[in-house]
Design a protein around this nucleic acid. Structure first.
Lengths: 237, 237
DNA sequence: TCGAAAAGTCGTCCATCGACGATAAACCGT
DNA sequence: ACGGTTTATCGTCGATGGACGACTTTTCGA
């Protein structure tokens, strides 16, 4: 039943396009670039055969450039997770000639434009779900450094006193960052908001952060917490 | 080489434990419960054979209760994504006898305790990455309803005027919610913060929200945005 | 207690998937 | 233009992985 074509053809089917030979580094770079796109869309369980089709090469060829699939995935992480962040963004953040609000907007516009994109978010989430420690550990260390700078500069420019506790400083930063990252996830993964809505939301998050920072930086945090805990005692969770 | 045990045993190896027959509904419920745990850990590509081992039944039996793997996964979504949220939480949120801050804390303590757990987060992210529309659409509609209530009540109790625009109300809510959800992800997926740190972070997010809300609700949003846009014109992204 | 219905398993089919040895085609210096 | 080197493909192997027909064991009511 399988159409095996018993015609007298003895020659193999000719290639439509002749083989193109690329130099080692070029081919490797091309495969890696395609692999980033491919695995970000189809997940880490995407098939090497499908990736090969996307690259326009035979599946066997992948194994000339990467010892196995895991090695290829490691390269994908290294290339696609860590690289997009640019520390130079933090330099401009401290430039007192521009109003703080605008600097923050610009910083997060850059961060969102390079990091919080569909590719990055999907790869990052896939690898995090797979319990791969490298991407989340690395990205988190970047973000912690980044948030230290963001909060420190914002507090300085607002004339607010930073909390003594470094952990409290980071908490404030993560509050801002969480709002923006979840916006990115809703934008690029769930696709339930469009680009304009995302920008408005990011700005809203920045405004919220700037509005709250002076209040949150007041000397006595016990004033904020004590009455809350007092009341919560009588409340069933 | 393979130890095939050429002893004279002609009988099949006896079962260690005798078969237990469960009634249809019980077995089905048991499989579903294990499936939720299983797929949340190993992802949607987890194997039915492994799930069967986890259930202590043969792989074939799964197909008595679910027509195929996709149908089983749909049941898992229905059971594990939508159910944990309890609308009654919103009722207590409006109880003016308790200070607003405490009600919000309690509300998010409940939400985190039932929804933002490892199981839920992992299943939700897996299905979102797989572009399965059901879980993200459903969960998002819940969250939008919920945030409407949260922001409305908070504004009322603070004596702040709600923005005319419903979208702006939701943006304010998502700013709070994003911070808390990303905290949950860092807690349960990346596992880079512990439970105590997560609670402090959630409280910080609530405090930030409450501190910013009166400022954000001031009548003229143009006062906040106009100068920012004026400056951003001359800034390269 | 016995027999039929319900619950459960065994073994297998077939498509898929990572991996790789053998071989062919393109490239390049001389 | 030719021969060695590099690039690339063909074809296949063994392990998985979802699905299911045929069969066995347990259960329970008459």
């Amino acid at each position: 039943m399988k159409a095996k074509s018993d015609s007298l053809r003895t020659t193999k089917p000719k290639r439509i396009t002749p083989r193109r030979h690329l130099r080692y580094d070029d081919r490797r770079a091309q495969i890696l670039e395609k692999a980033i796109l491919f695995f970000s869309e189809y997940g880490l369980t995407g098939q090497t055969r499908h990736l090969a089709v996307a690259c326009g090469v035979s599946q066997r060829l992948l194994y000339r450039y990467f010892t196995n699939k895991a090695a290829l995935l490691d390269e994908v992480y290294r290339e696609a997770i860590a690289k997009p962040f640019d520390e130079a963004w933090l330099t401009d953040l401290g430039d007192a000639a521009v109003p703080l609000h605008n600097r923050l907007r610009q910083f997060y516009a850059r961060y969102s434009g390079s990091v919080l994109q569909r590719r990055w978010l999907r790869l990052f989430l896939y690898s995090a779900l797979a319990e791969n420690p490298m991407p989340s550990a690395y990205a988190d260390s970047i973000v912690n450094l980044m948030l230290d700078v963001v909060v420190r500069i914002a507090a300085r420019d607002l004339g607010a006193a930073l909390p003594q506790d470094v952990a409290e400083v980071r908490r404030l930063g993560w509050t801002l960052h969480g709002a923006i990252v979840l916006g990115g996830i809703r934008r690029h993964i769930y696709r339930i908001i469009d680009d304009a809505a995302w920008q408005r939301e990011s700005e809203c998050a920045i405004d919220t952060f700037l509005a709250a920072l002076p209040v949150m930086c007041r000397p006595a945090p016990s004033e904020r917490r004590a009455p809350a805990e007092r009341h919560l005692d009588g409340v069933a969770a």
